[in-house]
């Protein structure tokens, strides 16, 4: 078990390094840097001025060195110009410019400064992650019980009318991406045409004060898409368990169907959905970005879109690093959880 964990962690760290490097590379492509220079300096800079600005600000070092600086494993660049003035990556970021630290990167907790929000990125990320966390928590609270219920009911009597209806419903929800269901839900529940104006079509006010009225639609939109998939996995798992020998034994010894399902089938049938639910979290990330844009809920996904739109390289990098980390950690949790839940794997 220990060696499994160590190996798994090693692969995870390697993956994280590779992925963040790819993101670093792609966000620091030449056109992006030029755009950055022009928005920092002025729009009418000549090419030579752009190049000299980039050179002066440390953007012309080898990419690996810059990646190391950003990560915080290499000392930040310093530079003394003709007037004897010293500038450097860490000098600008330091709270005390006279006595700058040698390293200033992600690991040191120095995430940089957002050009658009004019704030420290670590603060922005923390705040936005909190908002998205709130949304995700509500989504999970709606999605998981419903999906498990649908899956179990459909799977316990395979092939019946209930099963067919519920399966069709699950297929329908998996075929409806967030930008489709969101639009339909807004039209039905929040527009003139639908007539029912039960909810609000925007969740901007839900950031401080989430109410039933402004938070329902985004939560339902996100929950619906993920739910179908989890429900189908649960159904498959439940249907498989219901054909096991021990279920037949329990039935034959005279237990009621209810007791068989609740005491014997359910526990074994819920192992597979566990992994699916955990792995759903990174999968929901795309949905989060769509829903937050659609409902104007300024959380993590919205920030990601804003960072891309405004060419806010540092913010985009930080967001990407967090996103990659979330994906990898959830994968790790699902792997470990699966091993713990399933004794057959633990013995091997």
């Amino acid at each position: 078990m220990i060696s499994f964990l160590i190996r798994r962690l090693g692969v995870m760290i390697l993956t994280a390094l590779c992925l963040t490097f790819v993101v670093f590379f792609l966000t620091n492509l030449e056109p992006n840097l030029e755009k950055l220079t022009k928005s920092e300096g002025n729009m009418r800079m000549t090419d030579a001025q752009v190049q000299s600005w980039l050179d002066k600000n440390g953007y012309r070092q080898p990419i690996l060195k810059r990646y190391g600086e950003w990560l915080g494993v290499m000392p930040g660049w310093t530079r003394t110009d003709e007037n004897g003035e010293t500038t450097g990556r860490c000098i600008r970021r330091a709270e005390d410019p006279d006595n700058p630290p040698e390293y200033c990167g992600l690991i040191q907790g120095n995430w940089g400064f957002s050009l658009v929000f004019k704030e420290n990125i670590s603060g922005i990320v923390r705040e936005k992650l909190g908002l998205t966390g709130k949304l995700m928590l509500c989504v999970m609270l709606v999605m998981v019980p419903l999906a498990l219920l649908i899956g179990v009911i459909a799977g316990m009597r395979e092939g019946t009318k209930t099963d067919r209806t519920l399966s069709a419903f699950s297929i329908l929800t998996t075929s409806t991406p967030e930008y489709v269901s969101g639009v339909i839900l807004i039209v039905v529940f929040a527009s003139k045409l639908g007539g029912l104006r039960w909810f609000k079509g925007t969740a901007a006010t839900a950031m401080e004060n989430a109410t039933f009225e402004n938070f329902t639609l985004p939560v339902i939109t996100l929950a619906l898409y993920g739910m179908g998939y989890v429900a189908r996995m649960t159904r498959a798992s439940m249907a498989e368990v219901m054909q096991e020998q021990y279920i037949r034994t329990a039935r034959l010894k005279g237990l009621s169907f209810r007791a068989v399902v609740l005491k014997h089938a359910l526990r074994n049938a819920l192992i597979a959905p566990f992994t699916v639910i955990i792995l759903n979290i990174p999968w929901l990330l795309t949905g989060v970005v769509i829903v937050e844009t659609l409902f104007n809920y300024k959380g993590f996904g919205w920030t990601l879109v804003a960072a891309v739109g405004n060419n806010d390289i540092e913010l985009l990098l930080a967001c990407s690093a967090v996103a990659v980390l979330v994906v990898l950690v959830t994968q790790l949790i699902s792997d470990i959880g699966y091993v713990f839940l399933n004794p057959r794997i633990r013995i091997n």
Binding site: T15, L19, V22, V23, L26, T27, P282, L285, T286, V289, G301, L304, V305, V308, S320, A323, V324, V327, L328, Q331
Partner: peptide, 11 residues
């Protein structure tokens, strides 16, 4: 492991 949406935004 790469979030799809991020890849699209970058690519």
């Amino acid at each position: 492991a790469f979030p799809v949406i991020l890849l699209f935004f970058l690519l």
